[in-house]
């Protein structure tokens, strides 16, 4: 089995778990905080056998929106951290002034070890796209606040661009930019 596949499998486990956990935690935090009555059913409804019920459509709308937002946050925050870390690491290689700035903000630990790879960032980015797809679907169907769908779309777009930038940096390591040498 190829190393790439093994590593992709390894990197995909955490975001897969976080995606489900974000949705569940989002639902239960809002329900507990506002004391909404909740019922868990097991009617066989198409592909699924477990349903979470609320007795008011406005509550359902609110809980679904907030749980979508929590899911988006738990997937996007680690991805943004990885992108920032990789960018910062590369910046310190090319520009020593960045080390001073990193020390000023007490984030030197981010640049002491380059343990974030393009594959890891790409896998997280794929999960962010998946999350965004689900949120946009909910937004179109009127099950989530539209601003959450817009936020997810924007985050995915910019994360995609930055992931591409990281890919270019990784490629430059293998095939260095000709401008640097000629």
């Amino acid at each position: 089995m190829s190393k790439l596949l093994k590593r992709a499998l390894k990197y995909a486990i955490v975001p897969a778990i976080l995606m489900i956990a974000g949705k569940v935690i989002g639902i239960f935090i809002v329900t507990i905080k506002y004391g909404y009555p909740i019922e868990i059913g097991n009617d066989i409804n198409g592909f699924f056998s477990t349903q979470i019920y609320f007795d008011d459509s406005q509550i359902t709308y609110f809980v679904n929106s907030i749980s979508d937002l929590v899911m988006l946050i738990v997937i996007s925050v680690p991805l943004i951290y990885q992108i920032l870390k990789t960018s910062l690491f590369q910046s310190t290689v090319n520009n020593p002034k960045t080390i001073v700035k990193a020390a000023k903000f007490n984030i030197l630990s981010w640049i002491t070890k380059d343990d974030t790879t393009f594959l890891q960032t790409f896998v997280w980015c794929a999960f962010l796209w998946l999350t965004t797809g689900l949120i946009i679907k909910n937004g179109i169907e009127g099950d989530t606040y539209s601003w959450i769908a817009y936020l997810a779309g924007s985050l995915s777009f910019f994360s995609g661009l930055l992931t591409l930038k990281i890919f270019e940096i990784e490629i430059d390591r293998v095939y260095p930019d000709s401008k640097k040498y000629y």
């Binding site: 489900i20 592909f47 349903q51 609320f54 679904n64 998946l130 909910n138």
Partner: peptide, 12 residues
């Protein structure tokens, strides 16, 4: 995760 998240969407 996609199927689970769809399944977890609350209903009224």
């Amino acid at each position: 995760p996609s199927i689970t998240v769809i399944n977890l969407e609350p209903l009224t």
